[in-house]
Design a protein around this nucleic acid. Structure first.
Lengths: 137, 137
DNA sequence: TACATATTTGTAATGATTACAAATATATAA
DNA sequence: TTATATATTTGTAATCATTACAAATATGTA
């Protein structure tokens, strides 16, 4: 947990107990959880945790560059503690989300930058949807 | 409007008055409107229109391949009557959404397909976020 | 220790979306 | 054409994610 504390501090986020737990959860669970999933996972060990805190903290982490917010699913927002350059696949049947690191993904980011003048790109999100290996038989 | 009627019928969507109006609106307004925006725009000329119908119809259009659903904005879902292969840019300041047709965008779709075996890709969405030309001064 | 500031908490409000049943329109069969 | 079955639309009520906000708690500083 000392690691997480440093990681937050390095990004100018004061490492409170709640923030460390939530960041730690994101780093150790690559499941792209929703606010609810984070809350339900941490609540047993931390009974005073409030869902509002989970909302606030995840928002803070995103703003501080420590997490990605995924809108791949219209139903609820998902979060990813892995901020490296990668894409996501969402299965339309079982809803699983799979990380995706094609070696030429940086080309995707450049596609845009090469074409537009005045526009400033801060973030690129690539979502694939379809059927995962299991659901595709 | 006869055009829209044919367009819907060709995609096995029965062309009711409401469906034609909504499809027509999407085709003539490339603003990636929300459900609310579609409803507010059509309601004056069609006072009996219900917002539920707008929800149902847009869902039907998406399922029939006549519109795209964009989750670019977490706040509310947006729709695009242009189903051709293109990306979207969203300005973090003014919220405008800009269509984006880089000539090598098909490469983005292939990125995934080339890398995965059992997974079946039906849809690819590419979102860019940042500051538009105006907001970037 | 005392005080100022930051963080967390819980509840209430908001707003998008869905469920559902009644009303209306459309298509079909006699 | 008329009667009947089916599909579509409508309006209201419910649901659910998210946000607002003010009180409570914790933290940092003099």
């Amino acid at each position: 947990m000392i690691e997480v504390e440093k990681y937050l501090a390095e990004h100018n986020v004061k490492p409170s107990v709640q923030r460390c737990s939530i960041m730690q959860y994101l780093l150790t669970h690559k499941t792209h959880p929703t606010v609810d999933e984070v809350y339900l996972a941490l609540h047993p060990q931390m009974p005073t945790l409030s869902k509002t805190t989970v909302y606030n903290t995840l928002k803070l982490l995103v703003e501080s560059g420590l997490a990605l917010q995924l809108n791949i699913d219209a139903e609820s927002v998902r979060f990813d503690g892995d901020t490296s350059n990668h894409a996501h696949f969402c299965c339309n049947k079982c809803g699983c989300i799979i990380d995706f690191f094609p070696k030429d993904i940086s080309a995707i980011n450049n596609v845009c930058i090469n074409h537009l003048g005045g526009i400033k790109i801060d973030e690129t999100q690539v979502y694939y949807k379809g059927l995962c290996e299991k659901c595709n038989e």
